[in-house]
């Protein structure tokens, strides 16, 4: 589903590359944790998949297509196949839960009838039944993140990218979010989650890819989180 071939990304020629010759393949329906310290290249990975940036060297394939060959007017179509969730939720504060999720469908021209049908379904998937008309500020952090997830998956993307989705949440709430992501994954969506959270990684026992200074240093099928200090000690 996502394939990186010797991808190097240099933002500033003077400093070291953000990604350094990374090769990585994520299969359809896989769940992958991307771990590593801040600045290890996790966010760059996500930006390259979304074609927010282009690789300096190497090739990025998303759904079999080299993103470098996608003309700019086709980029929206690429992004419709990818859902994204962030640490800071990025909800629209003046819209209700329903409207926040519906927004993602409105802007790509879905009909009102489809929206009315789909949004409650998706809200149910993320465990927000009956909260259609709440405003974001009336929700807890975990609930806000669920809205963000609902918005990310409402257009049924094949890939869900999550950039530290539990970074602002307490452990219990985080586990709830993980359950939602796991359920989405089991419906066939490829999930790539960048995280710092060792508890979550250790509990989920999914594939773990560790980045350090822009390079893949570990790729375990059912891995655990190895903290910075331990990793250095190895």
């Amino acid at each position: 589903m996502i394939r990186f071939e010797n991808v190097t990304k240099v933002y500033d020629a003077k400093s070291r590359p953000a990604l350094d010759s990374v090769s990585l393949e994520v299969d359809r329906s896989e769940f992958v944790f991307l771990v590593g310290a801040s600045g290890s290249g996790k966010s760059t990975f996500i930006r390259l998949v979304l074609k927010e940036d282009s690789a300096s060297r190497g090739a990025v394939y998303v759904a079999g297509q080299n993103v470098a060959n996608i003309p700019s007017w086709r980029v929206p179509r690429l992004r419709r196949g990818i859902g994204v969730v962030f640490q800071d939720f990025r909800l629209l504060p003046n819209k209700t839960v329903f409207a926040n999720v519906a927004f993602a469908m409105q802007v790509i021209g879905k009909s009102r009838a489809v929206i009315r049908e789909t949004v409650p379904e998706v809200l149910k998937t993320v465990g927000l039944e009956g909260k259609n008309n709440r405003m974001p500020h009336e929700l807890s952090g975990g609930e806000q993140q669920r809205v963000a997830i609902a918005r990310a998956i409402v257009n049924r993307p094949g890939i869900l990218l999550a950039d530290e989705p539990t970074g602002n949440l307490d452990p219990t709430t985080s586990m709830g979010i993980m359950k939602v992501l796991d359920r989405i994954n089991s419906n066939g969506t490829t999930v790539v989650m960048a995280t710092h959270d060792d508890d979550i990684v250790n509990t989920m026992r999914k594939r773990v890819v560790e980045l350090r200074n822009g390079a893949v240093v570990r790729d375990d099928a059912q891995g655990i989180y190895i903290g910075e200090t331990e990793a250095v000690a190895e």
């Binding site: 979304l50 007017w73 929206p76 179509r77 690429l78 992004r79 419709r80 196949g81 990818i82 859902g83 994204v84 990025r90 629209l92 927004f103 993602a104 802007v107 790509i108 021209g109 918005r151 990310a152 257009n155």
Partner: peptide
């Protein structure tokens, strides 16, 4: 900018944005 950022992410076309 919040709205346009989200529009971009969910794949709204240039025209709609």
């Amino acid at each position: 900018r919040r709205e346009t950022g989200i529009m971009r992410l969910v794949g709204a076309s240039k025209a709609v944005i």
